[in-house]
Design a protein around this nucleic acid. Sequence first.
DNA 1: TTGTGACTAACAGTCCGTC
DNA 2: TGACGGACTGTTAGTCACA
Lengths: 75, 75
Amino acid sequence: MSINKKIGKRILALRKIQNLSQEALAHRANVDRTYITGVETGKRNVTVRVLERIIHALESNFGTFFNDKVFLDEK
Amino acid sequence: MSINKKIGKRILALRKIQNLSQEALAHRANVDRTYITGVETGKRNVTVRVLERIIHALESNFGTFFNDKVFLDEK
DNA sequence: TTGTGACTAACAGTCCGTC
DNA sequence: TGACGGACTGTTAGTCACA
């Protein structure tokens, strides 16, 4: 599984926990809604600068974001 | 401190621990030598795909890479 | 509410060097 | 050995109409 897909899954999971729509998250992170779609579906290869905005919008941080089994599994 | 500078510092630290030159790391990660310089000095905004290669070349992973005080400090 | 294809400006990333 | 520069190509950021 590509890093992009892993990140997409993680973002989706965190977004669902917070009961946010893609649009609400997009607004918080100051990116376009369709951009969030692209990231969540693993189609975008994000830069750390944008990823930082999204992670903060999810009220998380890099440490906890990547401390998830999604990033440890070999799938 | 920008996310790029934090990542640069972290990569430099891990590289020093392993006693690698920038060139050796670049070779392992399959990126250009001058690119490592740019990343370590915080001038480059890396994509997660390349960051993954660099982290693996440092024999680390995203979880432990970002589990560092550099990414927690507000500096 | 979410996904897709297409688009341009900006920049990621390479390769050639010099200091 | 590492920082830095210019020139270059490929890819991402950011947005839109549409489904």
